[in-house]
Design a protein around this nucleic acid. Sequence first.
RNA 1: GGAGAGGUGGCCGAGUCGGCUGAAGGCAACCGCCUGCUAAGCGGUUGUACGGGUAAAACCGUACCGAGGGUUCGAAUCCCUCCCUCUCCGCCA
Length: 429
Amino acid sequence: MLDVKFVRENMDAVREALRRRRSPVTLAGFEELDRERRETLSAVEKLRAERNAASEEIGHLRREGNDASALMERMREVSAAIKEKEAGLPDIEHRMEEVLHSLPNVPDPSVPEGEREEDNPTVRTWGDRPAFSFPVRDHVDIGTALDILDFDRAAKIAGARFCLMKGAGALMERALINFMLDVHTREHGYTEVLPPFLANSASFFGTGQLPKFEEDLFHVTGTDYYLVPTAEVPLTNIVRDEILSAGSLPLKMTAYTPCFRAEAGSHGKDVRGMIRQHQFNKVELVKICRPEESRGELETLTADAERILERLSLPYRVVTLCTADLGFSAAKTYDIEAWIPSQGRYREISSCSNFTDFQARRAKIRFRDGATGKIRLAHTLNGSGLAVGRTVVAILENFQQEDGSVRIPEALRPYMGGMDRITKAKGRS
RNA sequence: GGAGAGGUGGCCGAGUCGGCUGAAGGCAACCGCCUGCUAAGCGGUUGUACGGGUAAAACCGUACCGAGGGUUCGAAUCCCUCCCUCUCCGCCA
């Protein structure tokens, strides 16, 4: 959410931001609503001031044993007038909020303007893409043949966009989670958190998923709970409605959670395999920091995620999302994309964003500035460190062997009981 | 699920029969004094949001004592609904 005052005083800048984003949202009605709201508010406040003064007077008179019935009679009317005037406020404020809540974050000046995903410039590329002397198979074929992935039976249990992992596949998923958490906590200085996997609507509003993107979420019927689509929601909301001490910043947290996404509107997209699932595992990185630090923190956050891919010897590239591809709440986002041999292209495996004060304003995440003693909004950032399922996909495909087995990246072997290769298990599945 | 207790400022914690309580007192923080340093001590300052006002301040108004309604000239204080926390019992991984 943007600051009302900022919008009011920088209408042109906001319009320019919307244009850069290719957003269909407009500021239509904002000025009139804002003026209407302020006029009504000021009229109500004048009446309230009158009533407050009179009430005090009545108190005085009564204490001294004087008659105050005339004043009380007059105030009865004033109170009625207040009620009448006030009645219009909720509607105005509601419409005002609607406009305000629909405005996306202002992109950072360094974000390139673009029309579509293809306009995202590559920032850097790492690693050598494997060359295969045999026909490349995709992770579905590899995993099914090795009997470590089972999509058919997952569909029986749950439905489309679910996956069942077995044996070494399940072990690899668990190993990756542990590996990622260990690196981020021991080497990158994040505090591990195991949060609730359901959160209430206030939390979802805080990070910006609600009210605009409810259709992307799984809602638990009859409750105020939604399944988390990312650990960003519980982690960022840990400090919702809090005033932090400047000394505690930056806060760096990491968490493993399953993520649940309805994937409404992506029918027909990535239907095969585990690229796009209703449920997937992710290790998330979240930072809460001072405004001056957020640009730098985005760079280090992204680097922290990249280190994981490097340790796993998975080739990747980093792209900057152009204005049109940028998420609603983000001011700047780097996507890290891993090389997927079967598709002959890089696919998103992590998304690292700086939300500046956009989420902080919604979630009231503030800190006391030591220098001035003033309370200021913090900046929030987050990124996947990494999406675990997609990491398994990348490993299966990049490390596949001609005989159908899959080599395990060295860094992961200690987490898999020393296993260095996944081969077809004996016996029936 | 049953019974009880409670939710007040950055934190702890008073708020009597509704009126001069934005809210005592304490802690913390900040400024000054004092001190060889530290600690202690002494004096002072310190809520947030919105609106108005100002070059910027000062300043003025309104709202906020879990949330939302109600009663009243006036509600932190009374009434209703909901949420959350704690204790005991029951159930249970």
